[in-house]
Write a protein that binds this DNA or RNA. Structure first.
Ligand SMILES: [Zn+2]
Ligand SMILES: [Zn+2]
Ligand SMILES: [Zn+2]
Ligand SMILES: [Zn+2]
Lengths: 161, 161
DNA sequence: GCCTTGACTGTTATGATATAACAACAGATA
DNA sequence: TATCTGTTGTTATATCATAACAGTCAAGGC
């Protein structure tokens, strides 16, 4: 499990309310792009939303399998990749894991803040950051297609006051 | 092979000269930190420096093994992790690969520009970028310990004029 | 001198992550 | 109906990474 059991660690998951709103947004976004949020895909997104922190593909697979979906790795990877391609989830490379996008619909270039203590992953929208990266790339004559920004450290809940 | 054979693709490797300078810097830096740049470790760094683009651990292992060093994965991973820990190499997470640091000695937080066409990896020092990331984190009450910034796209050599 | 210690290198074995290739099916379309 | 496309599922395999243990060697204490 890439997950963890700690309570009240993830600011974004302190209430269950936003999950439904995010699912509705996701549904709308998928439809708008001509993509189908099929049962496995939707359930995969729900699983990510239910999780505190990011989940590994095999963690997701375990849950899907237990619910009667396919039992083999491609089932999870396909659903996860679909979600990532459509901006409904993000891949956290440092963790070899995935997390639901906390604000789908917006066209965002986010940075991920990974808490080394409670494993929570916070998605920080940072337009300035994106701008700085593009500027640095331009200086090198490099054209960015996509980027990954991840930081490891302590979240606010895990930082002693 | 994570490597590639394309000629004149990597601006940083167009001449062989800098490699020796970097090795000398690396040696100095290691000694200054009380670390030993042993034969395997040094050779591993050389292998990374000789490579265009980043190399996977098993690519490095293959070369080490061919030269009489150990033949098993831990040999490569240990040397690579040593180099990363001492700032002499970097891990490129998107590629599951490693690249030599092109300017060891400086205490830098770099961004990596990965060319999707020629596989070259350019290390861009970007103080503003680092500053923006720390600012974004601070807003979220997050304290950064270390960070990863990687961009995928086209390098200058692979961009049609 | 000789023994202990700690860092280093090598091994075997295993674990964790990810994809290729193929078969079956369902809804859309002509 | 026949066909096409996208989706799901499977088996098998590839790729990346680490745990645990054994042998080597040089430095420092006795
Ligand atoms: Zn997002
Ligand atoms: Zn935390
Ligand atoms: Zn560097
Ligand atoms: Zn290129």
């Amino acid at each position: 499990m890439t997950d963890h059991a700690h309570a009240f660690c993830c600011p974004d998951h302190s209430g269950a309310a936003p999950a439904e709103a995010i699912l509705a947004q996701a549904e709308a976004r998928a439809r708008a792009r001509g993509a189908r949020l099929t049962p496995v895909r939707r359930r995969t997104l729900e699983i990510l939303l239910e999780a505190h922190g990011a989940l590994g593909a095999y963690d997701v697979l375990e849950k899907l399998a237990a619910e009667g979906y396919g039992t083999q790795p491609p089932v999870a990877y396909r659903a996860l990749n679909f979600l990532v391609e459509h901006g409904l989830a993000h891949r956290i490379r440092r963790l070899n894991a995935f997390t639901a996008c906390t604000h789908p619909g917006e066209d965002h270039r986010a940075a991920f803040l990974i808490c080394a203590q409670c494993n929570s992953v916070t998605e920080a929208t940072a337009p300035e950051l994106s701008r700085a990266l593009h500027a640095a790339a331009r200086t090198a004559g490099f054209t960015i297609e996509c980027s990954t920004i991840e930081a490891l450290g302590r979240c606010s809940a895990c930082t002693p006051a």
